[in-house]
């Protein structure tokens, strides 16, 4: 399981026996060979600063769909998909963060939602006989975001 303090040392990778099952099960690797889960785990396990930094700057770490098949198949409990969440958290702090995700984050910061409440959708809801969509409590959401400094991270 994840631990905020542990973020700087991807320690679970040490358990890896290099069986390759995670890559064999990975839907992303199947179509994007530049994203190879086993290879990432192995790089992290070397604990060599340069190789780890390499992983953090690699744009392909964002190609994981988070399907968690690797986690179910890994015989050594490495939990690659969870490990990659830690990796991406660090990558984001170092500036390796896709624009589309910055956009999604800012949408949440502004509205508390990932999809805007458009006039067209209001009409469609009406037509379907649905009640008006209740907007989120944006003040609360923004207070939380301010406290975790998420706005600065994705700004």
């Amino acid at each position: 399981m994840m631990n905020f303090e542990k973020l700087q040392i991807p320690i679970d990778s040490n358990l890896c026996e290099r069986c390759g099952k995670c890559s064999g099960a990975c839907p992303s690797y199947r179509f994007m060979p530049e994203f190879n889960p086993a290879q990432i785990v192995i790089k992290l396990a070397t604990r060599e600063k340069e190789k780890i930094e390499d992983v953090f700057m690699d744009p392909s770490i964002w190609f994981c769909t988070m399907c968690h098949t690797c986690l179910e198949r890994c015989p050594e409990n490495v939990a690659p998909s969870h490990l990659f969440v830690e990796v991406k958290n660090i990558a984001a702090q170092q500036g390796n963060l896709p624009d589309s995700l910055k956009k999604e984050s800012n949408q949440i910061i502004e509205t508390g939602l990932t999809v805007p409440i458009s006039p067209a959708i209001k009409r469609r809801r009406d037509e379907l006989g649905l009640m008006e969509f209740l907007p989120p409590n944006i003040e609360e959401i923004q207070k939380i975001i301010k406290k975790t400094k998420f706005d600065q991270l994705v700004g």
Binding site: M2, F4, N89, S105, I108, G112, L113, T114, I144, F150
Partner: peptide
């Protein structure tokens, strides 16, 4: 009342677990 985005388990979790 007042609920917002869950938030997104793929994007937001990957950017900042704590948030």
């Amino acid at each position: 009342n007042g609920a917002g985005c869950c938030p997104d388990p793929i994007g937001i979790q990957s950017i900042d677990y704590k948030t």
